[in-house]
Design a protein around this nucleic acid. Structure first.
Length: 200
DNA sequence: AACATGATCAACT
DNA sequence: GTTGATCATGTTT
């Protein structure tokens, strides 16, 4: 059994989005399920910042889809992409700002059996590799939009700390606007990182 | 390198 | 109400 005692406090999510994205690497994402706990170490994130970021869904103001992004830090924003996959974000900064961190990949730690069922594949290395896979492995979808990451059912814990040398910073993946900004963070050389192009 | 797949949004009638 | 472009992707060849 894993120690879930050091739960991340709310203050953490009010920090600047880039900082939160960087600091999320190494933390444990935990979700309570019928059989116990699903848990994974966050390995890869992307920041979507408030100003001059045209790839941010909130950049052109509030819409039906992106409402959750304008909540205060610590709220979960989930949406569907390409009509197929779900992407999970954690809202950052203050109420009304409109920024968040996308969780792109994680390393399974607990509840592997259930993740395998959720995903329909058994390759451990790929269970949570890529934003769509992460959402599916944890069974997160539109029903989880607007939930809090400070819940009893879904929360983050301290787990591992990495130095800046162990973390790579690159442009984000799969976007066409503001594609040059260095807002993607991942653990260098980790096989759970989603893109093959860099540092994997 | 191709493609499956559908919601969302802006810009119209 | 409808249209059409776009999309924080993943899987398969």
């Amino acid at each position: 059994m894993i120690n879930f005692s050091k739960i991340i406090s709310k203050d953490f999510y009010f920090e600047k989005t880039e900082i939160v994205a960087r600091e999320l690497i190494g933390k444990l994402f935990v979700k309570k399920s019928a059989n116990g706990f699903l848990a994974a170490e966050i390995i890869e994130t992307e920041a979507y910042i408030a100003d001059f970021d045209e790839a941010n869904h909130a950049n052109r103001g509030m819409t039906n889809r992106n409402q959750a992004m304008f909540s205060e830090g610590g709220v979960i924003y989930v949406y569907k992409i390409y009509g197929v996959h779900h992407c999970v974000n954690i809202v950052t900064e203050l109420d009304g700002v409109g920024c968040a961190v996308l969780i792109r990949a994680a390393m399974p730690v607990s509840g592997l059996e259930e993740m395998i069922v959720n995903r329909g594949v058994s390759d451990e290395n790929r269970l949570l590799k890529g934003p769509g896979c992460f959402a599916k492995g944890f069974d997160l979808d539109i029903k989880d939009n607007f939930k809090s990451i400070l819940d009893d059912d879904i929360f983050l814990c301290e787990h591992k700390k990495y130095s800046d040398e162990e973390i790579a910073v690159t442009p984000r993946i799969g976007i066409s606007k503001s594609a040059d900004l260095p807002l993607r963070f991942f653990k260098k050389g980790c096989k759970f990182v989603s893109s093959k192009k860099f540092g994997n």
